[in-house]
Computed example of a mutant assay.
Amino acid sequence: MAMEVFSEKILNLWNKCEVRVIILLSLILQIILITFGSRRKFTARSWYRIVVWSAYLTADWVATVALGKLAASTHADSDLQIFWAQFLLLHLGGPDTITAYSLEDNELWLRHLLGLVVHVGVAFYVFLRS
């Protein structure tokens, strides 16, 4: 007999709101980067650096997952899908107030360019599907 971790009611609610929650998380991460990113060089507090570093590392991943969920969703409004796909591409571009967190990230610009091209392709696919 398998034990269910979440009730069916909670799973149905998550299935309805999953894309919205992921998009909201992406927006929160971008707000953190815009607000705190430019000040990270001048603040020595460890919690501050950990928050900015975590947001920096997860922001692209969350935006990519949201784009994938938009591409896979069939019940959402197509105009809303087009809007959010473009919005998430802005998230993938990253805020202009934070530079790469380390020098090694600056040297990986070609990999980031390839990733951006793939993300634009996914957004274009969402646009065409709508």
Rank of each mutant, 00 (worst) to 15 (best):
M1T: 09
M1G: 13
E8G: 01
E8H: 01
I10N: 00
N12P: 00
L13Q: 14
W14A: 02
K16W: 03
V19Y: 00
V19D: 01
V21I: 14
L25E: 11
Q30M: 12
I32F: 11
T35M: 10
T35E: 11
G37V: 03
S38A: 12
R39L: 13
T43I: 15
T43E: 14
A44K: 15
W47I: 08
Y48C: 07
Y48R: 04
R49S: 08
I50F: 09
V52N: 02
W53Y: 10
S54A: 11
S54V: 09
S54Q: 07
Y56K: 06
L57R: 15
A59F: 03
D60W: 08
V65Y: 05
V65M: 14
G68P: 04
K69A: 10
A71R: 06
S73C: 08
T74Q: 13
A76L: 15
D77L: 08
D79R: 13
L80V: 08
Q81T: 04
W84Q: 06
A85T: 09
L89P: 01
H91M: 10
T97C: 07
T99R: 10
T99P: 02
A100V: 02
Y101N: 06
L103S: 10
E104H: 04
N106L: 12
E107D: 03
L108G: 00
L113N: 08
H119E: 11
H119K: 11
V120N: 03
G121Y: 06
Y125W: 15
V126W: 01
F127Q: 11
F127N: 07
L128W: 08
R129D: 11
